[in-house]
Amino acid sequence: MRITTIALISLAVFLLLWSFRKDKDKTKKSLRLSGKRLKGIGVEIISILALIGLFLTLIPPGTIRTILGDTSVPLATIISAAFGSVSLIPAFVAFPLAASLVDQGAHLVSMAAFITTLTMVGFITAPIEIEYFGKKFTLIRNILSFLAAILIALGMGVIL
């Protein structure tokens, strides 16, 4: 378990104990609320995680490596951004992958686009986002984030 996860769980336990000491009923109410929410969205999240698992098995990172290996920087940037948009990879997998891509000749600009869209744009998690914030918000946020990712990548190309 990573340190942030431990910190998060400790925080939850600490707050819960504090709340329980202050007001039992309020705490129970809040827990019931949490439980219902979790149950409401749980099936959806598990389904989407299973889809991501399937997606990454069908298109393993190695394939991406070969595709990106022999394309020009602008095209590679767009492909990276697009691949980053559809998938969701934890940072501790994404960065080693990006680093190995750079070793094999991928440009830093493409990698910046890849990392940004990977984490910020999520087509695969869009159903969860829609559940909370609706279609309009989800669409606008993801499109803007995608454009920003390209801009960030271009900015990095200028500076680095």
Partner: peptide, 25 residues
């Protein structure tokens, strides 16, 4: 795919309950 999913699933089980407890509070 199932094996891949189980990695994500573990992360979810570790994090989501805490997140929902905090939001409830």
């Amino acid at each position: 795919s199932l094996k891949m999913t189980s990695i994500y699933f573990r992360e979810m089980v570790e994090i989501l309950p805490a997140v929902f407890i905090i939001t409830g509070l």
